[in-house]
Design a protein around this nucleic acid. Structure first.
Lengths: 107, 107
DNA sequence: CGGCATCCACACGGATACTG
DNA sequence: CAGTATCCGTGTGGATGCCG
């Protein structure tokens, strides 16, 4: 009976962190393409500016769902990918994606 | 093999519609409390202004995930609840909520 | 290539007051 | 009670330019 309120505050907290535009979509891209370089990621997320992409990635890094791999070559090569946590989080998008397909794609 | 790209555009579309602050949380509240009157809902979502609450509800109505039941009594009684679609959508939050608990509540 | 710095516009959200 | 109307500050995001 007290199972009705499963600490919604933590959900609210998580929702606030990922609610911004692009955020979840970036995770989804990384999950479906594997790790990507900054530029590639930017192209996949079509329409996002480098500034916002950087912001989102920093935030996702801080949350521990995305890792950043920096190679100081010339030109430099920076790769982003999902951490264990990131994959967990991205998985929760699967039902949402399935819903999106049913609602917006076909009949 | 081509199953790798399950029309991510529809996901992007859905994500954009629900990405705003409060939006998903409102659905969660309605799912856990059942239908609520405007004022009650406002109190549950603690911190939201009536203006934004109205905006969100109109948007959710337009998406077909929330219904609005208006009774022109004095004082008027307006009740909001989840449609079939709304319940589907809200369900996709369950794994997210479970994750939130594990990440933010206890060890 | 992968940013950060800067500038700027605008959408968003909060507070308040008012109405049916 | 359930909004709408208005005002207004702030955040957010886009564009551009420069740098290691």
């Amino acid at each position: 009976m007290s199972t009705k309120k499963p600490k919604s505050s933590s959900l609210e907290k998580l929702l606030n962190q990922i609610s911004g535009r692009w955020t979840m979509y970036i995770l989804w891209i990384l999950d479906n393409n594997g790790s990507l370089r900054f530029g590639e990621l930017g192209r996949e997320v079509a329409g996002i500016s480098t500034k916002v992409l950087t912001e989102r990635l920093r935030k996702l890094e801080a949350m521990g769902v995305v890792y950043r791999d920096y190679k100081a070559t010339i030109p430099p090569e920076v790769t982003y990918g999902l951490t264990e946590r990131g994959q967990e989080l991205s998985r929760t998008l699967d039902p949402l994606c399935e819903l999106a397909s049913r609602w917006y794609d076909s009949p």
